[in-house]
Design a protein around this nucleic acid. Sequence first.
DNA 1: CTTGAAAGCCGGTGGTA
DNA 2: TACCACCGGCTTTCAAG
Lengths: 160, 160
Amino acid sequence: MGHHQLDTLDEQILKLIAENARIPFLEVARACNVSGAAIHQRIQKLTNLGILKGSEFVIDPEKIGYETCAYIGIYLKDPESFDSVTQALQAIPEVVECHFTTGKYDMFIKIYARNNHHLLSVIHDKLQPLGLARTETLISFHEAIKRQMPIIVETEEEEL
Amino acid sequence: MGHHQLDTLDEQILKLIAENARIPFLEVARACNVSGAAIHQRIQKLTNLGILKGSEFVIDPEKIGYETCAYIGIYLKDPESFDSVTQALQAIPEVVECHFTTGKYDMFIKIYARNNHHLLSVIHDKLQPLGLARTETLISFHEAIKRQMPIIVETEEEEL
DNA sequence: CTTGAAAGCCGGTGGTA
DNA sequence: TACCACCGGCTTTCAAG
């Protein structure tokens, strides 16, 4: 599944809406020197292509009571059980990311918990029963950077 | 910096807008059985409290050419250089997260790169010069789960 | 991609409890 | 303080060109 070629207008639009999902489309239109309808059509196109997958409000985890963020490397007892474990992890709301990775771990997940005690209970009561051989936990004291990937459309290089 | 007490209306609003930043406030209002102005005011309150930190469109990294996602554990040469390294990492757009963690690493970051070659060049040309003693890279083949933390307001337990 | 127009929303004001 | 009703101006969305 390769990626699609985006033109300059797509790129401008993505840059503007990526960091502010509630920006009025007309404002985007003015910034891009096109009509509002054009923005509407492009955003629909980008959505249909699966490039835009939705929008989110960004919520400060600490401010709603999630004081502990942790990454956990998982060793499975049965390396065949990826899919069933992934499905089980889906049902644990504290798990916000789940990766299938190279290296020593079979899986690698990110968790938000209310505090260290809550984190321990998630690991002990919810994760271990899934058939894990062992886990390694990495607690984050502080998330210094949290942002989206850069939006840089690789254009065919033009000679100057 | 503890967290604020949210009531049921705040919680309902957060749940609705967290997963869809462009939902009309009036639709939220109808779902919550209050007026549109009430939603408007609550969202402003939540923003002022710092609970809402903005909004984002969710973009599929692969669809815009980022085929490699990796986590990197960093050992610093000089453990005092957190702040300057963090600042330097800010200037590297491929770095999307940066954590200060417990355990063996001094820092832990997440990176999006176009491909393995691009990832290597980021590590070699941009990260190593910052004064790192060593790095450990964990490449993600597949991100099976990617979502926000659960919004569960701890209410004072009410007897039934 | 544009214009144009209808439908509907946003964000403010003032009033009520 | 928190909610509601109301209104002007702007946005969104869908034609058609």
